[in-house]
């Protein structure tokens, strides 16, 4: 998991989280050993915005999500979430590395769905969804179960409450994972290649669920995906990454129909060839 405690970043000013942006990356650096994955990355996301991160593998897209979920520690810069530093906390007018308490505070608003689902095999479907609301947020069991049933209906698994994760297909497991993340009522939902581990015929079901969530909620969504049509349909903005930097950024129509950068064109071309 977290690899290294980076040097505490000295932010430009003594903590100026711009609260009109729900996410802001400020000169974020992430290294794995000698490999620089993100180099002084700057970008921000508005509340309710849905952002697709595309680009070749190894370009740092997943790392961005993992940093936001505090699964990795950054090596430089600051990430702001709703105006608060994510992996730092304020001490006087300085920012110091956050402790567990601060991390648990800032994580409240963020949820994540993983490529490999990561359901808990020791719980049935319903308990996978209710576990965190009950034991982390202190929601009453009845209430949590009612909500979980609603969410499982939403992801089209209304008949699988009692099923065990291992009895479900990959697509079904992933939909449970989506329901599980939503049960915590995150403001930000991170989706890390959520269809990459699925058999082709199961992809559509998961994407349909995500489309529905996008259309019916105002959750801010960041998703790493190779499903270009999905990215085009759902996102407000597409960020094209290469080698830890944003190569091109724009509305999906522009990126997919009229990319300005050669690297974007090459990447999109390669993706289409692959299909």
């Amino acid at each position: 998991m977290a690899t290294e405690t980076g040097p505490v970043a000295a932010p430009g000013k003594g903590g100026d989280g711009d609260a009109s942006k729900i996410i802001r990356f400020e000169k974020v650096v992430k290294r794995f050993g000698d490999n620089v994955v993100l180099r002084e990355l700057d970008f921000d996301v508005s509340p309710g915005e849905r952002v697709a991160l595309i680009g070749p593998s190894g370009s740092g897209k997943t790392t961005i999500l993992r940093l936001l979920m505090t699964l990795e520690k950054l090596n430089g810069g600051v990430i702001w979430v709703s105006g608060d530093p994510l992996s730092h906390m304020r001490k006087g007018d300085q920012l110091v590395t956050a402790d567990e308490k601060h991390l648990r505070q800032v994580r409240q608003t963020i949820g994540m769905v993983f490529q490999q689902f990561n359901l808990f095999p020791n719980m049935n479907v319903l308990r996978n969804v209710t576990e965190a609301p009950i034991h982390v947020k202190g929601v009453a069991r009845d209430e949590a179960e009612t909500k979980a049933r609603d969410l499982l209906n939403l992801v089209d698994l209304g008949d699988k409450y009692d099923a065990h994760p291992s009895q479900l297909s990959g697509g079904q497991q992933q939909r449970v994972a989506i329901a599980r993340a939503l049960a915590m009522e995150p403001k930000i939902l991170l989706l890390d290649e959520v269809t990459s581990a699925l058999d082709p015929e199961l992809v559509a079901g998961v994407l349909d669920v995500l489309r529905e969530i996008a259309n019916t909620t105002d959750i801010t969504m960041l998703f790493v995906t190779h499903e270009m049509r999905f990215a085009r349909d759902v996102s407000h903005r597409v960020l094209m990454f290469d080698q830890g930097q944003i190569v091109e950024s724009g509305p999906p129509d522009q990126i997919f129909s009229n990319p300005q950068e050669q690297r974007t064109r090459d990447f999109l071309h390669a993706i289409i060839e692959e299909r």
Binding site: Q108, Q116, L119, E131, H135, V136
Partner: peptide, 20 residues
């Protein structure tokens, strides 16, 4: 991956150990 799932659900280390 199981640890990461518990972090994404904001579980405390004690809860993670006990329940997952």
């Amino acid at each position: 991956a199981q640890y990461e799932a518990t972090i994404a659900l904001n579980m405390s280390p004690a809860l993670r150990m006990r329940r997952v």
